[in-house]
Design a protein around this nucleic acid. Structure first.
Length: 274
DNA sequence: AATCGTTCCTGATAGC
DNA sequence: TGCTATCAGGAACGAT
């Protein structure tokens, strides 16, 4: 699942690959027009042909491609979405749903086997509600311990569920939520209001640390995540609990448990996480 | 207003 | 071999 580190990896690779930015769009293939929200493919074509992407950035798990007329193409990969930088002549992947063909023959390909991903085209100045409501970026200076404490105090819910709430902290998904709680020694069903100051301190340290470490390793490939270069990430080699139910805890040897919270799997060590 | 449950979507896999 | 059931989960949405 593309979460913050995976999306950041894709954004960085597209920015520096030299194929996608400042290269006019000459043709767009639509394989899944219904993935475009609030706009018809014909209108997308009218607005994008001849334009070029001039910048790419990330907000939470959203990818934002800025166009030379001030419009923005916003992409959310959801479960199985990928963005590939494709050089001229590269073979077409069978799950490429939308393809932006560029002037020199290279292309930006939106690939998504399960078709849960979403695309939006925003006019200059137009806003997108989820982006407006997006929570703090955990790698930014604004993510202070005091602010985290304030967020935790202002709600009463299970900490695992809280970590997945994009309007509180941006970019954490199911994999890093379990991993962070293991590193902090916090049981995933603990209510936000019961966390002690030392536990909040640990959360504030480990959240950015694990996300940064995963970015350094180009993300986690558990199922089918691929970078914009169509390669696997490496952080799966450092997972401590996610997907390890029935296996032994690396720290204490206890069997890792899997529970379901809000229809989502959570993995933890009942001994290390009280 | 905050929180909770349901739904979408399809390839991979297990079991028969 | 071929079929069916099950599972994966981010977030919009409606309900509470």
């Amino acid at each position: 699942m593309p979460e913050l580190p995976e999306v950041e990896t894709i954004v960085r690779q597209i920015r520096k690959c030299g194929l996608i930015l400042n290269n006019p769009i000459v043709k767009i293939d639509f394989f899944r027009p219904q993935r475009w929200l609030g706009i018809e493919p014909e209108e997308v074509t009218v607005r994008l042909l001849g334009r070029q992407f001039v910048d790419i950035s990330r907000r939470g798990k959203y990818i934002i491609l800025k166009l030379d007329d001030g419009a923005r193409l916003v992409v959310h990969l959801r479960m199985t979405g990928k963005l590939f930088c494709s050089a001229k002549g590269d073979a077409l992947n069978q799950f490429s749903r939308e393809i932006f063909h560029l002037k020199d023959g290279s292309s930006l390909q939106f690939n998504d086997p399960r078709t849960l991903g979403k695309l939006y085209l925003l006019q200059p100045g137009e806003t997108l509600e989820p982006l407006e409501k997006m929570g703090v970026e955990p790698l930014a200076a604004e993510f202070t311990r005091e602010y985290l404490q304030q967020l935790l105090n202002s709600c009463d819910r299970e900490i695992k569920d809280f970590l997945l709430d994009q309007t509180k902290i941006a970019g954490i998904g199911n994999i890093y939520a379990s991993e962070v709680l293991f590193l902090c020694g916090i049981q995933p069903e603990r209510r936000t209001g019961t966390l002690t100051p030392p536990e909040v301190k640990l959360l504030h340290q480990h959240i950015p640390a694990i996300l940064q470490r995963s970015i350094d390793l180009k993300g986690t490939t558990v199922y089918d995540f691929r970078t914009a270069e169509n390669k696997k990430g490496s952080f799966q080699l450092e997972l401590k609990v996610y997907g390890r139910n029935g296996e032994k805890c690396f720290k204490c040897g206890t069997e890792i448990k899997r529970i379901v919270q809000k229809q989502r799997s959570s993995y933890f060590c009942a001994r290390c996480q009280q």
